[in-house]
């Protein structure tokens, strides 16, 4: 911040900072390294020599991973389902949050608690009732149904995070627009949603990861292999009397690549959103 000449102490602090951050980075990046080196090993080598790169890599793990786990198909299914659910949750969540944060009507507090309480639902418990219900409606093996199902369980958390954020907005930010004659939806989409970007993105990252890694819903509600999702594909390497760890690691490497790329890209968005947010002050 202050542009003075740097003292020796400053250099030591700087070195300490980077030494510490690099150490943490190594610990955090370790699993990626582990997944990468394991993805070209056989089971015996993974277990006898887990942390050292192999001298005789078996690249066949990758084609086998794709074939065994049907990764090619499940990959696109997962992207389509996850993005749709994240978007619907973001949109419907933002609309509801705006109302819950700013509007005055009877029962507001109740509706807020009612929606946010959904965060506490342990999803294992509702599987049987849900299966009854969706089975009766003939909604097994149906992507749109699965998307709405995921959305339903991401709405509470989205509303919780976004409402809290919107409550901090002073009324003045809408006032000018309203006086100019903007409708409610115009105000929401042109002013409120852009200003809420940091909260919306934080919630969406959380939602994205939750859906991407969710096992139980696709397991129960998707029947055919060509409609299956990625997280379940990873399970296909664990068999009754032993597992294919090389295969599962190859599948993991394939499946986390887009998540990490998406995060790196989303991160840019967060920062843009933050800048937009900073203007308001």
């Amino acid at each position: 911040m202050n542009k003075r000449r740097h003292s020796t102490k400053w250099y030591f602090l700087q070195m300490g900072y980077y030494a510490f951050m690099i150490l943490v980075a190594i610990i955090m990046a370790f699993p990626i390294y582990f997944a990468l080196i394991s993805s070209v090993k056989g089971n015996t080598e993974i277990f006898s020599n887990p942390f050292v790169p192999t001298v005789s890599p078996v690249f066949e793990n990758y084609p086998r991973a794709i074939k065994t786990g049907h990764i090619d198909k499940s990959f696109f299914n997962t992207i389509y389902i996850t993005l749709s659910a994240v978007l619907i949750a973001m949109l419907s969540g933002a609309m509801a949050s705006y109302i819950l944060a700013k509007f005055r009507f009877r029962g507001r507090a109740f509706i807020y608690v009612f929606v946010v309480a959904g965060m506490m639902i342990p999803i294992q418990t509702i599987i049987i009732p849900l299966a009854f219900y969706l089975g009766k409606l003939g909604l097994f093996d149906n992507h749109p149904a699965l998307i709405l199902l995921f959305t339903a369980f991401q709405i509470p958390m989205t509303v919780f995070v976004v409402t809290g954020f919107m409550k901090g907005f002073p009324h003045e930010i809408e006032e000018a627009a309203v006086i100019d004659g903007a409708t409610h939806s115009r105000t929401l989409f042109m002013i409120i949603i852009p200003l809420s970007a940091p909260a919306l993105v934080s919630a969406s990252i959380f939602n994205f990861i939750n859906i991407w890694n969710n096992l139980l819903f696709p397991l129960i509600f998707i029947r055919s292999a060509e409609k299956q999702m990625l997280a379940l594909s990873l399970q296909s390497f664990f068999a009754e009397r032993g597992s294919d760890y090389g295969g599962v690691m190859a599948a993991i490497v394939i499946s986390i690549t887009p998540t990490i790329l998406a995060y790196v890209m989303m991160q840019e968005r967060v920062e843009m959103g933050l800048m937009a947010g900073a203007v308001k002050g």
Binding site: P129, L130, F153
Partner: peptide, 19 residues
Amino acid sequence: FLLPALVIYVGLAVYPIVQ
């Protein structure tokens, strides 16, 4: 504005938890 979120949430999350 509340309707879309509430319909999805009540229909697919609240109903089964009540069950």
